[in-house]
Design a protein around this nucleic acid. Structure first.
Lengths: 240, 240
DNA sequence: GCCAAAGTTTGCGTTGGCGCAACGTCGACG
DNA sequence: CGTCGACGTTGCGCCAACGCAAACTTTGGC
């Protein structure tokens, strides 16, 4: 019997199109594991022994440059796969995965991937779609970094996080895991100082409410307008 | 009989692991087409009716923002696939593909993809690997844009182009297709003015030789050192 | 062979955002 | 409940790169 009830994961994109029996067979090869907040699931450069599905919590994937600078590649939300290095032809993890909250994962041995794919080709096509989506998102990020200023990039980043991992609260949408100014800086290609200044500004304008590792979007729509507004541009002129 | 001799494309990553017969069956569904320099293979937002393998020439994939700014996503070299929107779950092309040189492509109807993948699952795993590689490359680009200055990013971009599409010439390596300052600016997230200034500087130092839509790397190694050098940093200090 | 268009170069003033530094504040842990 | 460490804020000076503008060069079309 599998470690996890198939019905709990049947709806995930990775398992689209599978019968309960097939799912059971796949799940039988997985183990489940828990990672405490701030612990590493795997480290950049390590041999890619497993691939994962996140069940609960949140995981940050980040790359460290030779010079020691870190860049956040993405945040993983529950239901998403990560660490699929083997599937895309890598022997080693290209990034570090850190649990930013207490997290629970399903883990398969990477060695099982070829056999699983041989038996269940839909795994490959499903993974192709999710990797494709990530490629699109990363291209979007490149376009933003090429054409927009820091304030807009930060706005976009927060809106994306809120969409992916937002939790409705009293006065807006709160990002549902601990996130620092530094983290946001590493997502948007700037410094924590600049992020701090931007958030302070927004706070005074009532757009957000934020504190230690905590951000609430109070006016997501206004933030969206700000994110789309070309800096030099003002409101569309009203005809006299 | 197929339009293209199987032996000509058997070595491509997309077709890894296929027999000549299988390859023939796949190629039978393709048509070949020629695109003149500066003509569009497909446009961003168009319905993704085909996917392609580039046989000869060079193709630029670029995205246009709502504000009208363009960003170069990548350059496609012979042997590479492009326009695989359908495989990654898109109905429409997310970018425009332009032949930067007279080019020849193989084109399959996107509609054939599901059937081909069903019959030849290795197509999916091969594509997964190439899309995975592109994701890695794009992440590298994000990291560079986040941590490096313009001069280094331009150096990296040229070195990558030289590796992918370099042609040995008398005094170095020439990038084997027409490429403007503007193109390089759109690859590295800067302006054509800044690129022009940087290339002028390098030209005086004898690192490159360049002209109208033409760039020769005369000292690739020195360029590599420059690309890796942290701006503030000088040569490692010599002990007294 | 001439002209228009496209690509490139370069000067100059401006500025967004960085780097540094100092200080403030919250929370966890003993 | 006090202390220490991590996180956040803010002022200030600076500079890499941008934006604008003008001039120059090459090339392809007619």
């Amino acid at each position: 019997m599998a470690i996890v009830d198939p019905s709990l994961v049947a709806h995930l994109p990775l398992f689209a199109g599978f019968s309960t029996d097939e799912l059971g067979e796949i799940l039988r090869e997985a183990r489940s594991a828990r990672f405490a907040r701030n612990s590493a699931v795997f480290e950049q450069g390590e041999e890619a022994l497993s691939f994962y599905v996140l069940l609960h919590g949140h995981v940050r994937a980040s790359k460290t440059t030779p010079a020691g600078e870190q860049v956040v590649v993405r945040y993983v939300a529950p239901g998403e796969t990560f660490g699929v290095a083997m599937a895309i032809g890598l022997q080693r993890y290209p990034a570090t995965a850190t649990a930013v909250d207490d997290s629970v994962v399903l883990a398969w041995p990477s060695a099982a991937w070829p056999r699983l794919v041989a038996k269940f080709p839909a795994l490959a096509t499903n993974t192709l779609q999710t990797v494709g989506s990530r490629l699109q998102e990363t291209h979007t990020r490149v376009v933003e970094m090429s054409t927009q200023q820091v304030e807009q990039r930060v706005a976009h980043a927060l809106l994306r996080l809120a969409k992916q991992s937002g939790r409705k609260v009293e006065h807006g949408v709160e990002i549902d895991f601990p996130i620092s100014r530094q983290d946001i800086a590493q997502m948007t290609g700037t410094t924590l100082h600049t992020v701090s200044r931007i958030l302070s500004g927004w706070e005074q304008r009532g757009l957000v409410e934020s504190g230690r590792q905590r951000i609430v979007l109070r006016e997501p729509h206004k933030l969206f307008v700000l994110a789309e507004t070309v800096p030099g541009e003002t409101e569309p002129p009203i005809r006299p």
